[in-house]
Amino acid sequence: MKYLQGIYKIIEKTALSETCFSFVIDCPEVAKISKAGQFVHILPKGKFLRRPISICQIDYEKGTLRIVFEIRGEGTQELSELNIGDDIDMIAPCGNGFEIFDNAKKIVLVGGGIGTPPMLGLSDIYKEKATAICGFRNKDAVILENDFLSNNTNTIICTDDGSYGIKGFVTDSLKAECEKGDVDLICACGPTPMLKAVSAIAQENNIECFVSLEERMGCGIGACLVCACKTKDENGEKMSHVCKNGPVFNAKEVVL
């Protein structure tokens, strides 16, 4: 475990939709030690608590991190108003990222809405070995499709209302992929009901599955114990902490 706190510069800003933004942050010392699935803990100006945002992409050569976030409340609103050249205060990289399986031949990445960004970091690693199944409310909410495609990752977009891609839930497409029988790893991030369904499908098909969880946070590093989630092992159930023991957990270990 290693993280830093510092003030870094935003060097790129893109609006991906009306409410969704992408920043590239210049932070060589942080990028060097970051892994897909970890998060940054950002302090919006004027707020008391920091906001956890997943690392979306890491450029080890340029020493930059990309984050993608949606406006959900005052803190993310404040962040969305920052521009290129502005400073951003963060503790990073936080938590444990995704374990990378070099031998995996077919990996399915499941992203639900704003849970999609960390899946792109895995697409950067697994490239054409990965199939991304990403679900959104409607056409306007779809993000990062071209980024997945440029990695030659097979990309399936689902929308709740059918206004783009396949109409329906990511879990229907996931089931279809699993039935093909060659999937050996599933990684997922999104709302808890989705993660629950994904875990169940993985278990039925006996496929290794990792999920990235969300919980409200204080310190972001494991000291205050506010971000609890229930996990289980051979000794029974206990409380783990999303910021330190996660946000990525083996689906078998977490009680959703």
Binding site: K47, F48, R216, L225, V226, C227, A228, K238
Partner: peptide, 23 residues
Amino acid sequence: RDGNIPPRIAETPSGMLNSVGLQ
């Protein structure tokens, strides 16, 4: 002690509430 069920933290104007429950 395992403490309370999350969410255990809420932001407030210039502060926060916690309900860790002595985990």
